[in-house]
C-alpha cells in the first residue's frame, strides 16, 4: 500500500477536512440513492395503480362496489395511494352529504370538490416527496467536493513552499488526493440530477392525470346529483 498510489491509500492519506468532505459526500450519495430507488419504485407503482384503477373505473363497475373493495383492502392494513384515494375521498364526501336530508346539490358538489382537492394536494405532496433533497444534493455536492479539492490543493502547495526544488512529484499526490473529493461530489451529483429531472417529470405527469381524473369524477357525481 505504501508503494502504490491506490485510490484507497489516497483517501486514507488525505488531510482531515478533505476526509470530512469525502465522508459528507459519501453519506449524501448513500441517502440520495436511497431516495432514488424508493422514488423510482414508488412512482412506478403509482403509475401501475393509476392504469389498473382507471381501467376498472371506466369498465362500468358499480361505484359502491369499487368503494367497498377499497375498504376491504384498507382493513387488510394496506394503504391506498394515488388516484384511488382521490376517488375514495370524493365518494365518501358525496355519500355523506347526499344522505343528509337537506342536501343542496351545489353544496354537495362543493363539498366533494373540496374533499378531492385536499386529497389531490396530499397526493401531490407524496409524489414530490424527497425530490427537493435530490435537487439539493445535485446542486450542492459538486461545491462541497470542490471545497475539498481546493483545500487539498492549498495544503499540498503549502507543503511545496518548504521544498527547495519544486517538482511535480511532490505536489502530484496531494493534488490527486484532493481531486478525489471533486470526483466524489460529481459521483453523488450526477445520479441525483438525472433522478430529479426524471422523477419530477413523472410526478408532473401523474399529477396531471390525477387532476384530470378528479375533474372527470366530479362531473360524474355532478350528473348523479342533478339527475336525482
Amino acid at each position: 500500500m505504501t508503494e502504490q498510489l491506490s485510490l484507497w491509500a489516497l483517501v486514507v492519506g488525505a488531510t482531515l477536512p478533505v476526509q470530512l468532505v469525502m465522508l459528507i459526500l459519501l453519506a449524501a450519495s448513500v441517502v440520495s440513492w436511497v431516495m432514488i430507488i424508493q422514488r423510482g419504485l414508488y412512482l412506478r407503482q403509482t403509475r401501475g395503480d393509476l392504469d389498473t384503477f382507471e381501467q376498472t373505473f371506466w369498465s362500468g363497475v358499480d361505484l359502491n362496489e369499487l368503494f367497498r373493495s377499497g375498504n376491504g383492502r384498507l382493513n387488510k392494513d394496506n394503504t391506498i395511494d394515488g388516484v384511488e384515494s382521490l376517488f375514495r375521498a370524493g365518494f365518501r364526501e358525496f355519500n355523506r352529504l347526499s344522505q343528509s336530508v337537506s342536501a343542496d346539490p351545489d353544496a354537495v358538489m362543493e363539498g366533494v370538490e373540496r374533499a378531492m382537492r385536499v386529497a389531490l394536494s396530499r397526493e401531490e405532496e407524496k409524489l414530490n416527496m424527497n425530490l427537493p433533497f435530490l435537487a439539493s444534493v445535485a446542486s450542492v455536492s459538486p461545491y462541497i467536493g470542490l471545497f475539498g479539492t481546493v483545500w487539498g490543493i492549498m495544503h499540498s502547495f503549502r507543503g511545496l513552499a518548504n521544498v527547495q526544488q519544486a517538482t511535480l512529484a511532490i505536489v502530484a499526490p496531494g493534488i490527486s488526493e484532493a481531486l478525489i473529493a471533486t470526483a466524489m461530489g460529481l459521483f453523488a451529483a450526477i445520479p441525483a440530477v438525472l433522478a430529479f429531472n426524471r422523477f419530477s417529470a413523472n410526478a408532473d405527469v401523474l399529477y396531471n392525470a390525477y387532476d384530470t381524473f378528479s375533474d372527470e369524477f366530479s362531473s360524474i357525481l355532478h350528473r348523479r346529483v342533478h339527475s336525482d
Partner: peptide, 14 residues
C-alpha cells in the same frame, strides 16, 4: 413508513 420500497431502497443503496 408504509410507502413502498424504503427498506428495499436502503438495502440496495447501502
Amino acid at each position: 413508513g408504509k410507502l413502498p420500497g424504503y427498506s428495499v431502497a436502503i438495502v440496495s443503496s447501502l
